[in-house]
């Protein structure tokens, strides 16, 4: 059964790129969210197997959204998407229960490796 993914990123460009990578590799993207608030709503609605969470977003950032999703569903599998220079926020996210992180710019192999590991 294919894994159902929720993509969270404020840039449509990034969502499209990531969606392409995921769908070419057997994942199903069930929803996309463009900020943290949106992400929480979509998580509750779709109950995805895995979430890719951007960090820097308007409205509510990825770390806050992660915390709220974890509070709602402690088994939520969230992989952070981060750019170079955000180590401290990634560390915050890991402390808050993020299972892994991928670094932009996205490398197909790495993205898939991270998601495969998390959903094993």
């Amino acid at each position: 059964m294919t894994k159902r993914v929720l993509i969270v990123d404020d840039a449509a460009f990034m969502r499209m790129k990531l969606k392409d990578i995921l769908e070419k590799n057997g994942y199903t993207v069930v929803a996309e969210a463009e900020n943290g608030v949106d992400a929480i709503e979509k998580y509750k609605a779709e109950n995805p197997d895995i979430v890719t969470m951007d960090i820097t977003m308007p409205e509510m950032d990825g770390v806050e959204a992660l915390k709220e999703i974890k509070a709602f569903d402690s088994a939520a599998k969230v992989v952070m998407c981060s750019a170079m220079g955000q180590q401290s926020m990634v560390m915050d996210a890991i402390r808050a229960g993020a299972l892994d992180f991928i670094v932009k710019p996205f490398d197909t192999g790495r993205v898939i490796q991270a998601l495969d590991k998390v959903t094993q």
């Binding site: 840039a11 820097t56 308007p58 170079m84 932009k104 710019p105």
Partner: peptide, 28 residues
Amino acid sequence: FRSAHTLKGMAGTMGYDSLAKLTHKMEN
């Protein structure tokens, strides 16, 4: 900051090095 950050991310993904470099420094 967010705008520069997003630009940087997109530029990096597209492989536009000059743009990525510039936006990265701006972000700093």
